[in-house]
């Protein structure tokens, strides 16, 4: 899941300042789950912005709200075409993908990000999310006992722990487990320590020339036997 957090109210107020009619657009998938931009956060932000406006005595903005199932698919954007036409800007509480899909879909409407997209991760306890995947495009979890050193080691190194690990924690953050100690322990448990003894060459960053694209469709002109 993509994890994000809502931007501070002041920043959002600054962003929307030039626009009179603003649609607060929620996302019903990851942003709902991580509590950054689902129905509840949309309505909370809506209330907060209205209240902030009322307290300053100004009446600059008119807000509306709507939450689509997923902002990262253009088809969902088509569903809000009418709403989008009526506003001067869209404040998207979708992740960075949602904001851009909205921007691509509504070329004449400014689309503003209401959240800071943080990472891909999981909930580890109520209210706590932890990063798990860096989307490196070259998954080596099979060699590392299902624990990602790219994401969970602060240095993303491939051949074992650095000397900074202490009490099983990372030198960069004493609250975070050292990924390589975890990997070692799990490989030991699985009887696969030889995987750690292997040398792993430098990563091939060519797998991620930005922006990345994934094509999973055979194009018609590539098909065999057309004649």
């Amino acid at each position: 899941m993509i994890v994000a957090e809502q931007k501070p109210l002041e920043e959002i107020q600054r962003m929307i300042a030039p626009y009179e009619k603003v649609l607060i657009l929620g996302c019903g998938t990851c942003m709902t789950v991580c509590g950054a931009g689902g129905e509840r956060e949309v309505s909370f932000l809506h209330s907060a912005l209205r209240l902030a406006q009322a307290r300053t005595g100004s009446n600059t903005h008119q807000f509306s709200e709507y939450t689509v199932k997923r902002q990262c698919d253009p088809e969902f954007m088509a569903l809000i075409a009418d709403r989008a036409r009526e506003v001067d800007a869209i404040l998207s509480l979708g992740c960075g993908i949602g904001v851009q899909v909205a921007a691509e879909h509504f070329p004449d409407t400014p689309v503003l990000p209401g959240v800071n997209t943080s990472f891909m991760g999981t909930i580890t306890e109520l209210g706590v999310w932890d990063e798990r995947c860096a989307a490196c495009g070259d998954c080596r979890l099979a060699e590392t006992a299902g624990i990602c050193p790219i994401t969970r080691c602060t240095k993303g190194i491939l051949n074992g722990p650095c000397a900074g690990t202490k009490n099983g924690k990372c030198e960069a953050n004493k609250d975070i487990d050292c990924a390589w100690i975890l990997i070692y322990e799990r490989l030991e448990r699985l009887g696969q320590l030889e995987k750690m003894r292997r040398y792993y060459p430098p990563r091939n960053f060519r797998t991620i020339p930005r922006p990345r694209r994934l094509v999973n469709l055979v194009k018609a002109d590539m098909e065999e036997g057309n004649g």
Binding site: P161, T165, N167, G168, Y184
Partner: peptide, 9 residues
Amino acid sequence: DRIEPQLVK
């Protein structure tokens, strides 16, 4: 404090 992974490296 955890010497074995260090030795691997």
